[in-house]
Amino acid sequence: MKGNISQPIDDRAARWAARTLSGVMKPEEKTALAGWLEADPRHRQAFDSYVEITELASEAHDVAAAAALERELEVFAHERSSRWSWLVAAPAMAASIAAAALFFGAMTNSQPTPERYATARGETAVFTLKDGSAVSLNTDSVLEVNFSNEERSVSLARGEALFDVTRDAERPFVVSSATAEARVLGTRFNVKAMGESTIVSVLSGVVEVNAVKESVHRAADAAVTLIAGQETIFIPDSNKKDVRTFNPDAVTSWLRGKAIYENQPLSAVIADLNRYYTAQFLLGDDSLGNIPVTGGFDLKDQAITIEALEIALSLRAEKNPNGQILLLPNG
């Protein structure tokens, strides 16, 4: 077949191919090329052989460039592992172990009683479980720990906790809330139970999240697998299982005594902030609820938070006789 194409046709086809690759063909040139290709099937055949080699060259280059990058990464990994192996080791909780945890374990020998940890409003605590896993407990939270030989089961009855789980392939680590159950082998992730909804955010590793069966009518396939950087929100009677990415700095900000919000409605921000303070925020006007809020708030000092809300959102805060803080439009 190739032998049938005459030299002049092939020369012409190569010139047209080079014109096409310039990417700056004029409309009249495009029309001329289309006419030339239509005129004779051998024109098309010759031209196509140049299109093909062009595509093959790009494919070959991509394969080679990807392989070169892969090798580069291998070398990088090798260099890192010899110099920085201690950095790659499982991350340990930097915070000191706080004494705030309450312990009611093993009162009787007959029945294993779960260990119970709790924090008061505005308080956080860090503690280590028997298997070496670290747990940070946020404000107003209750966690029950019940380890057996088969499973390391913890239940977040209320609030928010960040888990840094020690690896144990024999005994999975299972965190359950009212609505969701997260099952892992070893990883770092945050679980936030707000009323009936549960948000699971994975900071490293992989976590499988299931609906708690009694709580919601979810299909058996409602399991969601999350990898580092992803989170999902479980809401009762909702079949949605959206997986989205999140900002790790915002999700873990409570460990640093801050709350960070990105474009959240004021109503949601108030609901979240109220977890931390005894003096609860209240919106004086429903229309305020939709104001978008982006920023960080100090969780240790409510006075600073009040001032920040007043200045950033042009609000006025007033304490009412019940000790609540009423937010009102300014002026």
Binding site: A77, V88, R167, L185, S204, V206, A228
Partner: peptide, 8 residues
């Protein structure tokens, strides 16, 4: 899981 955790 192990591999992702290690290489992330």
């Amino acid at each position: 899981e192990e591999a992702i955790r290690r290489d992330e």
